[in-house]
Design a protein around this nucleic acid. Structure first.
Lengths: 187, 187
DNA sequence: TTAATATACGGAGGCGGCCTCCGATTGGCT
DNA sequence: AGCCAATCGGAGGCCGCCTCCGTATATTAA
């Protein structure tokens, strides 16, 4: 039913070169990198890029879906970790690192979580589902406030990741995340 | 020494109409609003806009400086508040609301704090100076962790403000800020 | 091998935004 | 009134987005 005709050889070649160059370009210039530039570097016309990826989001989604799925998988593994809170923090830290790879990616994923019509919504959403299991487990273990939702935590993570990207040095995100989890009030 | 020739009447009129329309446009479309559109709505040529405000930042700075100074002033007042931590939180909340007025403004101010060459650096910096006095006072009163810096707090605030802007409802920022100050661990 | 055809390619062209430059205009002063 | 410096306005060059359609080619059938 869902089987697709194999692509013509030239089409598949172009498709892959485009993805490759897109990855380079996004890593170098952020998610707003010029699509014409990507096509140029891939050695194809701009029309070809748009045929394979009708929107910028479609291109990004293709690049990111595998990554998102990997994070969902990692969350599943961490459900077996002996320390629920540590597991949660570790997962969030990994996610934070990932959203830091392309400038502007955090904005994108944060928005995708609230916009069902987004192409990225589905994979983001699936990731959140598994993530919230980690959250629930930490709550049940009495290691996390009962009144915090997975949404809020994910948003806080995105916020920390965003902030990390607006800091001169490295590792800002990790430090902020730690601060948030440790609490700010004096003991 | 610093006295400036008074502007010609038409120049002053255009200058003010531009500021007015810029405010409208930024509020409506965020800090990336079209400059040509602003000029059009103000009834002047695009050249006139660029003569008065050579860059987008110059325009934004003119709009924001007064606001920043007001926040610095408020911080000075809050130094007399009986509850140091409450004072700090209140100041941060006000600041967070302000950076939420234009879409994209948080990014701008967060970056300005780390870029001395930014036109907004000076007024941002002055604000931070007074803000850190609030932070120090809260620490001295034993109401805030000793190892948190004013920079980190300001960044966390910006992060919360950013996140608030990427949430469907209202008041997301306030909730996140509260979470951060209360701490996430279970008591 | 060749011919037929569906598939895919590529870039010209329209649009809008950024910014500069300079001839036309006008306010303010004498 | 008349002059001139200050100011105006928008044409034009550049770039990025995206669509459309004439051209080229991989594939399949003969």
């Amino acid at each position: 039913m869902t089987d697709v005709k194999p692509m013509r050889a030239d089409a598949r070649r172009n498709y892959e070169r485009l993805l490759e160059e897109a990855k380079r370009a996004f890593a170098e210039h952020g998610v707003e990198a010029s699509l014409e530039d990507i096509a140029r570097r891939a050695g194809v016309g701009i029309g070809t890029l748009y045929r394979h990826f009708p929107t910028r989001d479609a291109l990004l989604e293709t690049l990111l879906r595998a990554r998102f799925d990997a994070h969902a998988e990692r969350a599943r593994e961490l459900l077996a970790h002996p320390e629920p809170l540590t597991a949660l923090q570790s997962w969030l830290a990994g996610l934070g690192d990932a959203t830091g790879t392309f400038r502007g990616l955090v904005e994108l994923t944060a928005d995708a979580l609230n916009d069902e019509s987004s192409r990225l919504y589905e994979s983001c959403h699936r990731m959140r589902e598994v993530g919230s299991q980690l959250v629930e487990r930490a709550k049940r273990a009495g290691q996390l406030r009962e009144d915090v939702t997975a949404e809020e935590l994910l948003l806080l993570l995105h916020a920390a990741s965003w902030a990390g990207g607006h800091l001169p040095g490295e590792g800002g995100m990790q430090r902020l995340l730690a601060l948030v989890f440790e609490g700010l009030r004096a003991s």
